[in-house]
Design a protein around this nucleic acid. Sequence first.
RNA 1: GGUCUCGUAGCUCAGUUGGAUAGAGCAUCAGAUUUCUAAUCUGACGGUCGUGGGUUCGAGCCCCGCCGAGAUCACCA
Length: 591
Amino acid sequence: MNIEKFLTEKATQAVTALYGAVDPALVQIQKTRKEFVGDYTLVTFPLLKTSRLSPDATAEAIGVWLAANVTEVSGYNVIKGFLNISLADSFWAARFSDISADYGRLPATGRTVMVEYSSPNTNKPLHLGHIRNNLLGYSVAEILKANGHRVIKANLVNDRGIHICKSMLAWQLYSGGETPESSGLKGDHLVGKYYVEFDKHYKAEIKELMAAGQSEDDAKRNAPVMLAAQDMLRKWEAHDPEVYGLWQKMNGWVYDGFEQTYKALGVDFDKTYYESNTYLLGKALVGEGLEKGVFKKRDDGSVWIDLTPDGLDEKLLLRGDGTSVYMTQDLGTATQRFAEEKLDDMIYVVGNEQNYHFQVLKLILSKLGYAWADNITHLSYGMVELPEGKMKSREGTVVDADDLVADMVETAREMSASTGKLDDCTPDQADQISRMVGMGALKYFILKVDPRKTMLFDPKESIDFNGNTGPFIQYTHARIRSILRKAAEGGIEYLNAPAPASYLPEEVALVKQLVDFPAVVAQAGEQFSPAVIGAYVYELAKTFNGYYHDHSILKEPDQAVRAMRLQLASKVARVIRSGMQLLGIEVPERM
RNA sequence: GGUCUCGUAGCUCAGUUGGAUAGAGCAUCAGAUUUCUAAUCUGACGGUCGUGGGUUCGAGCCCCGCCGAGAUCACCA
């Protein structure tokens, strides 16, 4: 049940009974702040025109009416125009028993939503920026599932183009036939190594040509390796067997590498698209746009759309030689997906550097008359910056995804070893827990920040394991599970126990927080924000830790109270687990 | 230059459609363990919410100017 909605209705009835008809939008119910007594608060200021009384008098009158007419309301107080309403313990006890195993799974909506994320280039390994993308995409997909949508997780692999040819060429020229097997390097790292190698030789050649008297622009154009790479791209497009074979071989290495990284990150996809298959899509749309008069052809044969009336620029859609550009492809794939997958919504998890691209994409689609253009969302996330600014591959400041993951797991292992808590674990169990905790720290660190905002990562200060962190939440879960294990060992039955005579304020507070979970899931879904879930789960864990500190569960002598506390703890653990699952974070049974 | 985003404690971040005395964590300092896991808990310190106006009963949030940071405006993807 939605308590705020319930109280809004009741308060509207109260105002209507006391003062006559009122616009329900003016009846504002919100949670009571911690420093005041009460559960929910009615703000009376918007109602003063209706009541024609002072704020306090209005609040008092409504309070009297609610206390007399609504059985769930156990009391009220008035402070400076705010009416704080308290609900009865019996009401909260009923809400408590509502909390089921699948709490936080919202009813099915019948909508199909595609979430595209990750979308890597196959010329270099994944880095910290990709980690944010992958974690966000996966989590948002899980959150949308919990909101009752059918979700398709999609990955569009950028596996063709000049940048791929650069790695291929450099490998051909300088590797001596090195393979992942012969070098022991992960496939994506090996290919990335030759992408860097290309750049080194390219730069050297530019320098030489400039020393021989060419201008910088000419040198960049005429450098032999660049010409060779471009030649290779033409051969690839012509399906030259040798080039095509090399391309398949090297991309295969990269996919093996990516697969390992995805597995370590715990992300997956329902569909993988390859740009080599889709880059010709969209050309049909060009004809359609020309027919509708939305696009215009120039004398050189290139096709454009003029978006200056919308405050944007002119945008190219087809080159003079008839080849398509990024925008054309994206228009094509979007159209294809909505048709083939019968999508209701499409979410692109792509960095905010592409805000303009998606603005233009949506605008063109709506100009072409596709109503579903409005159902495209660009989930535009902020960059991850280092203390010295942006990551730059040239300056070697890129934080590699695989390295970071390994570091986190290793740190978690050292932390566990120093406490001695895993001493009686098998090596396998210890590995498992270190992995969960290390990844939990990394994932929570990234996901707790509002996706839209630029965030800072300081490698030197390494990610925390105390305070507002993943491990803090995991630890709370592990402690609860430990109590429940001990209860089971002691043969304590708590599931079907009678309700206790009364509840502590801390217990009611926990129930209130638990009851919020479905609304939090809904809010996270509306805002595409894992951070909303993170903040909620952290607060819940913190509240429980305070309660745990002050009140013993297993040593409570009153059996009904003890049973209730065990139930409460078990529900807290379950909601923590569910919430963390929406973030893609596992919670251990012990740590 | 045009468009867009951001600016909250020393640092990293929260702050619901505008509501009460702006909150956490880290760091610093002081405490708590004969106890169900101290990766925990309690307390202290720390703020002209970039800045100047405006709207409102009420502004961190809405509007305008300015300062500062970033992104983007490719026949790259």
